[in-house]
Structures are given as structure tokens and as C-alpha cells.
């Protein structure tokens, strides 16, 4: 199974990025091979629609799940159309989040926000 998450740095010890669409990198972790790959998020400096473009990157990486602190409605629409499950991440490192997911300790993200278009994040 392939797990994806938005990260601030290219490291297993980094915290997950508070923004999905504007995260600098995505970590793709394969639970079978234990391999991790870091992808640049090409949407990081998008004028608009960053969530859509970022979600496209995730979809194109053939992942099964996304662990994220939050997710906007446009990104969620892309991910759900590709049958990618979105889980609410812990306020902790990428490694901790992978462990928590593997141990079945994460729950599905139930709060999809309407986006912060032109208003910045809180």
C-alpha cells in the first residue's frame, strides 16, 4: 500500500505540512517495500487552484491513502474521484504518522474546508 502526505522537509522526522495544496513536498511511502520517495509539489506557488494541482500529483503517484492535517473541497473532489482515502494526520512526524496509520490509529478526515481562496490560512 502506498501512503502519501504533505511534508515541510525531505525527511522522515519532519512534521506534516499544515497546508496540503501549498506543501513544499509530498512523501510517498510504500508499506510493502518500506521505500520512501519525496516529490516536489509543483502547485506550491500556483496563482490559484493549488489544491487541485497538488491532488493531481498525488493521484498520478498511484497512492491509496493521503494523511493530512486538513484538505480543501476541490482537492478532496479530485482525491475522492480517484478513490484515495483521506485520513486526519497526527500533529507529529511523518514517521509517527506512518506508524499510526499502519496500526489503524488514524481516522478518516471528516472536515473538508471550503478553501482559503485569497484569504490566507488560519
Amino acid at each position: 500500500m502506498k501512503i502519501s502526505m504533505p511534508v515541510d522537509l525531505k525527511s522522515m522526522d519532519t512534521n506534516l505540512c499544515r497546508s496540503f495544496g501549498r506543501a513544499p513536498y509530498f512523501l510517498i511511502y510504500d508499506t510493502e517495500s518500506n521505500e520512501s520517495v519525496y516529490l516536489d509539489n509543483s502547485a506550491v506557488a500556483s496563482q490559484g487552484g493549488a489544491g487541485i494541482k497538488a491532488a493531481q500529483t498525488i493521484v498520478d503517484s498511484d497512492v491509496n491513502v493521503l494523511l493530512t492535517p486538513r484538505c480543501g473541497e476541490n482537492a478532496a473532489r479530485v482525491l475522492q474521484a480517484a478513490d484515495i482515502k483521506i485520513y486526519k494526520s497526527l500533529n507529529s512526524s511523518a514517521k509517527d504518522n506512518i506508524d499510526a496509520f499502519v496500526d489503524n490509529k488514524l481516522s478518516l478526515l471528516d472536515e473538508i474546508h471550503a478553501g482559503f481562496h485569497h484569504h490566507g490560512g488560519k
Partner: peptide
Amino acid sequence: FCKFNALAYIKDKVVVFDEV
């Protein structure tokens, strides 16, 4: 092409985000 990212390609289909 879309610099507003109003289009995505999912499961062999183009998806249009009208409001974007």
C-alpha cells in the same frame, strides 16, 4: 495549459472545476 488549475485528469477523464 490551465494556469488556474481548473482541470484535473482522473481515472481517464478530464474533470472541470467550474468555479476555478
